[in-house]
Nucleic acid binder design. Sequence first.
DNA 1: AACCAGTGCAACCGCTTCTTT
DNA 2: TAAAGAAGCGGTTGCACTGGT
Length: 161
Amino acid sequence: MRKPCCEKKETNRGSWSQEEDQKLSDYIKQHGEGCWRSLPKAAGLRRCGKSCRLRWINYLRPGLKRGNFGEDEEDLIIRLHALLGNRWSLIAGRLPGRTDNEVKNYWNSHLRKKLIQMGIDPKKPHQLGGKGLHIKTCLPDLNLDLTLSNTAPSTTLVEES
DNA sequence: AACCAGTGCAACCGCTTCTTT
DNA sequence: TAAAGAAGCGGTTGCACTGGT
């Protein structure tokens, strides 16, 4: 049996306070990311490492865009989702300043509905092929330097002209 | 003004993958 | 090569906020 990542009784849960945010970002600015397991103790936080990592990546990390997605971003998410499926971290990697959590939330709350309204089943990405998109072999078009660990796809999406 | 349903976002949970020994 | 530990990821949940009645 694996130990839990943290002792639940000794950790705070729920929303982060300003003080906690400050401690976390101060610590990371000083020491850099890494070793999330030991970070909370070192930073003086009563949080588990997972929680710290998530908070940093999704909220505190510099360069994050907040607010609405632009049309171009929306379009790119749809295309990448058609190509990659629910691989949110890969999709987010193509959207500067966006996080996997943000992309996932946006997909689930906005884009899925939008596609359904358009008569597209979001679970069947290849239907997009009939809506002005073709999936072709080869990568260069969208400048996708996807580095997939297991099944590296050799496909990309290109706009039908 | 009060209630309720719908929505969006932040955070948690548990599984998978990667790394180290 | 296998096992254990750490990190990463995606699914899901909880709650605050908003708009409609």
